[in-house]
Design a protein around this nucleic acid. Structure first.
Lengths: 367, 367
DNA sequence: TTGTAGGCGTTATCAT
DNA sequence: ATGATAACGCCTACAA
């Protein structure tokens, strides 16, 4: 019968959730009709006047607007949305609001959305694919005009849902390879390869990688870039040098310690992102080693604090705000029926700072 | 006539904004009536079935739900909002999404809101009071059930608007002193005083302050706490030691340089927040001085990266997520008519780390 | 230039 | 247990 989860229906959900207390009914806001009554005109006339329609005489328009303002009239976007069939609202799904990457992307999106008088409905998935589906469904119920998903693990779970939804969707920086998905991505592989090559150029031969185990597409690509650089340099890939974190600083600490406990520890490490790099740097210091002098570190993203770390972090910059802006602009195109949008790709740029330096004299050389 | 800005009316705005391209009308989503037709029942019955009302027989309910799911039916929150008069949406106003403080508060809010099946509409003011009013108005039009304003400069501009709005509002960490405003704040003054006392206890006599010129209430209070500590220690307040940034790292660099150029530069500095402290630390290093050894630094907030700076930042911790949660819970109370909420106050806690140390031997002692 | 009459997709209030 | 009917506040014909 294929209906494994009948309880997952719309209405069913609501009853299982915590219930907020009953809402007080505040004294109703004035409606278009109230204004019409006061102005001795019909409701549509009020509607027209407030929309600056040329179909209403200047004087009546002025009178109406005056009354509307006096009454503190504020058109109901929900009523308007019901009839116009669009809400001038887009949904933004992020893994966590307080992630610096997501924050900057969100800023680009929000700013652009606002320029067009759109509002942003925020939802976090906390890297839980099930929850991600839930919030997307939620957004659909609220009839958002479009959705942007930033840095999700867009599991197989969600794909059919998204296809069924027929709401325009743009993905930022992590697309599940599929035709119908529009996305803005960065050159993950090339970016990480450049970072690794930079280290190799500094004489490093034992270069490690701390990844993200959440299964993001971006991690797969960055890891590939790292490997490519090693292989190309004739160094080859050593499995013991590729460990996994979760994109958070704290987890990276343990991952870095693990690397430093190896018989032949790395002299450099490429990190999935800046948060990871920050954790790695801390682990390095906590062992009495010096970042750059003893172990070089690279990050990815170039979040705002990267330049303020000591030493400042060498990292692969993503133009995050710009990517947010592009995502929003692509979404606008999609919403207006231009299927052209498709994939946009931005280039990554290596920013060399103090966290990377020449490889130290090797004492315990392997072989 | 008191209508200084007739053009500020609702409808008028929209025409001056950039216009997004016309939206395509996607093939309509199934409505409750469509389902009713297929199930050979009336619309209200469908509505009831989908809400798990006991007023509908188990079999019809099952049949209806099956059809609804097959059709990919998704109840329209906008239609529901029109009749129920609440949208299960709250508005969140922040100065900037990508600010780490705002981000963590937002996370607390979002998580709590979601527990109650509420959604969050995001709006940033970018510290522009005019824009702040605009977004609040915008939120009102969208008929949010409540509003949380985090760290705004709630100028006089907004106050009358907020009062008129009759939407429940909770402020986080920056309240304009007024009776009708509900807020969650931290003990700004006490917190900063403890930080300053910590430095004084370490032997520092030249203690500076880098504030925030945006005119936040929190800055006024923190500055007062700083002064109080100095006065109480018999050191007294020196105007030249109190300079202003804007809460961002970059501006703090210049502010710190200014302090270090003084004839008798400070040996310690209290910063308005962690971002400011981060900038100050960078300025200190760029002059060849060492943080802690030469100049001690304290922050405020304890954002996630504070512990990862080198040296780790001594700072006054705000339980940001918790504050977000409290704000949301207070808002729920307000929305349910309990006027009790009022002000909630949380305590600040000094977290001592490596960025503060004993005052250096003073060479050029004044007097 | 303005008014009248519908309808958007729900929930709510009556009936039956 | 179910079905008519009427809102909710706005917009959009179409008619005057």
């Amino acid at each position: 019968m294929l209906e494994k989860s009948a309880s997952k229906t719309t209405g069913a959900l609501r009853t299982t959730e915590k219930r907020a207390p009953a809402l007080r009914q505040s004294s109703r806001q004035p409606s278009i009709k109230d204004i019409a009554l006061l102005a001795h005109v019909s409701h549509p006339t009020v509607s027209r006047a407030l929309q600056n329609s040329p179909l209403v005489s200047a004087e009546t328009a002025a009178k109406i607007r005056k009354i509307a303002e006096d009454q503190g009239y504020r058109a109901s976007a929900v009523a308007r949305g019901l009839v116009t069939r669009h809400t001038r609202t887009i949904g933004l799904v992020v893994t966590a609001v307080d992630d610096p990457f997501a924050g900057e992307v969100a800023r680009g999106i929000e700013t652009t959305a606002n320029d067009y008088h759109y509002a942003v409905l925020l939802a976090s998935s906390h890297a839980d694919p099930e929850r991600e589906c839930k919030v997307v469904e939620e957004l659909a119920e609220r009839r958002v005009d479009g959705i942007i998903v930033a840095s999700p693990r867009l599991g197989a779970l969600c794909l059919p849902l998204l296809k069924e939804l027929d709401v325009p969707i743009v993905l930022v920086n992590d697309q599940y390879p599929s035709e119908f998905v529009h996305s803005v991505t960065i050159a993950n592989q090339a970016g990480m390869r450049v970072a690794a090559e930079h280290l190799i150029g500094l004489g490093h031969r034992r270069v490690a990688y701390i990844g993200d185990r959440n299964g993001f597409q971006s991690n797969t690509e960055r890891l590939a870039g790292y490997k490519a650089a090693l292989v190309r340099a004739g160094i080859g890939f050593a499995a013991e040098l590729a460990v996994e974190g979760d994109g958070q600083a704290e987890t990276a600490i343990e991952a870095m310690h693990e690397l430093l406990r190896l018989n032949t520890p790395p002299t450099a490490v490429c990190c999935y992102n800046d948060m990871t790099a920050m954790g790695a740097m801390r682990a390095i210091r906590s062992r009495g080693l010096r970042v750059s002098h003893d172990v070089s570190v690279t990050g990815f993203d170039d979040v705002f604090f990267a330049a303020y770390l000591a030493p400042a972090l060498t990292t692969v910059r993503q133009p995050m705000r710009r990517m947010g802006q592009m995502a929003m602009e692509n979404l606008f195109k999609l919403m207006s029926g231009q299927e052209s949008a498709a994939r946009a790709r931005v280039e990554a740029e290596l920013i060399v700072r103090g966290s990377t330096g020449r490889a130290p004299r090797q004492e315990g050389h392997d072989e």
